[in-house]
Design a protein around this nucleic acid. Structure first.
Lengths: 127, 127
DNA sequence: ACATCAATTGAAAATAAATTGCAATAGCAA
DNA sequence: TTGCTATTGCAATTTATTTTCAATTGATGT
């Protein structure tokens, strides 16, 4: 399955990188519509899946809500506010040794890990 | 909102603890049906949400699939096989200091974190 | 430039997961 | 035993995402 470089795909990836949120498909679609009203929602869904498979995009699964995506695929962690639902990047050093530790203890082939912190964000704290 | 101790609620929690998988709502419902065919799927959905809010049950969000639940609410980590989709407990010591570190760096109120390891499980490795 | 062919697109329909509305039931406290 | 309200079961609804399919288009070779 070769992969083509369509204009839609380029716009979707560019917009995702520009937003720098962790938008849901709907949110990204809404943003894309402003500039390119002919791109369909189906195409956004489809390309986010393909781009995730290609490793150009990262999917962030959060409880109680649709999948979110980000255009920055380098490993890093996340924080989710349990009040407003917002998702933020957490840039602390990636814990390097635990993957090997889990691999050794369980025998799994560990390719990586995700960490989701939870609590209350700054905005929601002052309410 | 007081909470009543209904027979359905008890059965749902018991069955979840007995299974000791990380079943989806559908899987748990199927198991419950074997012994209690009159309990409705809606009630299973509803109680898993309520029990999660009460802290008696933990929800495990996995990408590419419905929410999963477990009856063991003490903090621990998880591994998900990207081939078969299976979710396993990972019992390594909980990393104690990172929550405070994130709190200090970002100002968030950090109440905890989840770690999801990913890779290939033992069964899927030998294929 | 031209032809070819499969990947991709857009629109609509279908599916999957979870929630909601509502009348009937059943915990629980008085 | 009575009364109040949380809860239940069923059906309908909503939300998120995937699939189907005919038409289009990007990439490749001529």
């Amino acid at each position: 399955m070769e992969r083509r470089n369509t204009v839609q795909r380029k716009i979707i990836l560019e917009t995702l990188k520009r937003l720098n949120n962790h938008p849901t498909t709907e949110e990204l679609y809404a943003e894309i519509q402003k500039g390119y009203p002919t791109i369909s929602k189906t195409t956004v869904y489809r390309n986010l899946r393909l781009l995730t498979q290609s490793g150009l995009v990262r999917r962030v699964s959060v409880p109680d809500g649709p999948e979110r995506y980000e255009g920055q695929p380098e490993p890093h962690y996340h924080f989710r506010c349990s009040i407003c639902g917002g998702v933020f990047d957490v840039d602390i050093p990636v814990i390097s040794d635990i993957d090997a530790r889990v691999a050794q203890k369980y025998g799994f082939d560990v390719s990586g890990h995700d960490i989701m912190f939870h609590g209350v964000c700054n905005k929601c704290k002052q309410m």
